[in-house]
Design a protein around this nucleic acid. Structure first.
Length: 490
RNA sequence: GCUCGUAUAGUGUAGUGGCCCAUCAUGAAGGACUCUCAUUCCUUCGACCCGGGUUCAAAUCCCGGUACGAGCACCA
């Protein structure tokens, strides 16, 4: 009987190992070389949800220690904080910027050299690779701490060019895993040619930590207790654990998730998107075709839907491929109850109403929620719009109104009550219609559909349901953005 | 090549030796409700990678194979 409890389907995320309520510290550390993407959302959602579960702390950390290969984008520091707040529903408890902490990393590098578990290596990358493969020590490995500190000062003073010297962590050249053998901790960057975009940093430093060192030291300094990240960083954990042993620290608990691919999106990289935006392939970071948070928001994806999506996937180490339909299903659940109904007649054709009918019509804003009020349509002109795709059938039921028969350009009212099984179509009196364009995406292309939109007072940003068409976001008076891909139109 | 990791329905996911002829969601098909091709509700379909072993008992433990992914960057 008690055992049924344990067998019941687990709800939400699994428990954290070694976690004490109120004492859990988590972090998410993106590179600010662009705004956040769909994949980043996983790190944000999982880590911030654990913060919630354990009443702990959540740190947003900018790992901006490369000025050349992945140069940070200045605006991203702000954007990412806003996006984090949007997605997680609150500000991070702490924000740490790695480039503000260079002195701290230098201090630890010096400790490492002084205590003899690190050394300044002057081999080239190619040379060292041979030593790594051969499992033999490079000549620099046996230098005394005194010598290492001298070389260190020379690194700091710009006496070496990038590539001429690097600080390595002494591990063991015979370790089974080649990735762990005397891994590099800090290197030189030509910050004169490639200054850091933050004006307060600029060209102030030439010795910069690599991710494994920076992240390891910072996690310790911030008291991080649990690290949950992609399994591509598993070797990172092993490297960092070796460093922690040297320093006499204890490594946080770790969990990993696998790769996620979205069927409809190929492999997008931040740098590739950046290039495509610059060449005009995409309109901006918020282009609805892009797998960025900005792009998803642009098309009306709710943060709650994104959270539910990632929580449902959980943190398995399996590499998976999911269709966008899964995300859309979550989004539909979130938005439907609040989405006012609106009529949008695509490719409209004008008809004249023939027959007796009232001058006005009242239709609920939402069929399931009377308290959302009524929309009132004005029929006095006797002219209506019908969707041209609906005209194949000559007998139609105008939704909420009347059965009509179509002859030429007129719609003859045959009955106000529903009298048979004729198809129900959406329609619009011209007095309540304005021209509008519905924008959507399909197969990485943008399409526009012209039509007549029902007059409304919803502010920009409102998610509405266009009856028989789909959910859409109101962009401005005459523009709508389709929330979910695939309309069968192009 | 070396190292590490993962393998449950179409797609995701629960399950850590007996409650499992396997959970939940999504998807597909059918139906109910509805004056939307929406929402809601109901029904049906459909899976433990392969081969050995341990055990009274294995999706669950062990070994081997296969497949897929990641790391071996002076990127993150």
């Amino acid at each position: 009987m008690e055992k049924r409890e344990t067998k019941a389907r687990r709800e939400g995320l699994p428990e954290l190992q070694n976690a004490e309520k109120g004492k859990v510290v988590l972090r998410f550390a993106p590179n600010p070389n662009g705004p956040l993407s769909f994949g980043h959302a996983r790190g944000l959602v999982i880590n911030s949800t654990y913060r919630e579960m354990y009443d702990g702390e959540f740190i947003l950390r900018f790992d901006d220690t490369d000025t050349k290969v992945k140069p940070p984008m200045l605006e991203a520091y702000q954007t990412i904080q806003e996006e984090t707040e949007w997605l997680t529903g609150r500000k991070p408890d702490r924000v740490v910027i790695a480039s503000d902490r260079i002195d701290e990393y230098h201090r630890h590098a010096e400790m490492m050299l002084d205590q003899g578990f690190g050394y300044v290596c002057r081999c080239s990358a190619e040379e060292f690779k041979e030593y790594r493969v051969a499992k033999t020590a490079c000549p620099c490995r046996t230098q005394t701490p005194q010598d290492n500190l001298v070389f260190w000062k020379r690194m700091l003073n710009g006496k070496f060019k990038p590539g001429q010297a690097v600080v390595r962590v002494k591990t063991d050249m015979t370790l089974k895993n080649p990735a762990l053998r005397d891994w590099p901790a800090l290197r030189l960057q030509d910050t004169a040619a490639h200054p850091h975009p933050r004006p307060e940093i600029g060209s102030a430093h030439v010795v910069w930590p690599l991710l494994d060192f920076q992240s390891a030291v910072e996690d310790h300094l911030q008291g991080v207790t649990h690290i949950i990240r992609g399994k591509d960083l598993m070797d990172s954990t092993r490297k960092q654990t070796l460093l922690y042993e040297h320093f006499g620290w204890t490594y946080p608990e770790t969990m990993y998730w696998g790769r996620v691919k979205v069927h409809e999106w190929g492999g997008f990289s931040t740098s590739q998107m950046r290039a495509d935006i610059e060449t005009g392939t995409y309109s901006g970071w918020d282009d609805p075709r892009l797998p960025t948070l900005a792009g998803l928001r642009q098309r009306g994806t709710q943060s709650e839907a994104l959270r539910n999506f990632w929580l449902e996937l959980g943190i398995t180490q399996k590499d998976i491929s999911v269709p966008l339909a899964t995300l859309y299903a979550h989004n539909t659940k979130v938005i439907d109850d609040d989405a006012p109904r609106l009529t949008f007649v695509r490719h409209p054709a004008s008809f004249t109403l023939v027959g007796d009918h009232p001058d006005s019509l009242s239709i609920p804003v939402h069929p399931n929620h009377e308290n959302m009020g009524q929309r009132t349509w004005n029929l006095s002109s006797g002219t209506i719009w019908l969707e041209s795709e609906d005209l194949e059938k000559m007998d139609l039921r105008l939704k909420e109104f009347a059965d009509v028969g179509l002859h030429d350009r007129s719609a003859h009212i045959e009955s106000m009550e529903r009298s048979d099984k004729r198809p129900i179509v959406h329609w619009l009196p011209d007095r309540n219609a304005t021209e509008a364009v519905l924008t959507g995406t399909k197969d990485n292309a943008v399409f526009h559909i012209e039509g007549q939109l029902e007059a409304h007072k919803h502010p920009a940003g409102t998610i509405v349901q266009l009856e028989r068409v789909g959910y859409a976001k109101i962009v401005d008076k005459t523009t709508l953005m389709l929330c979910h891909e695939d309309l069968g139109e192009s």
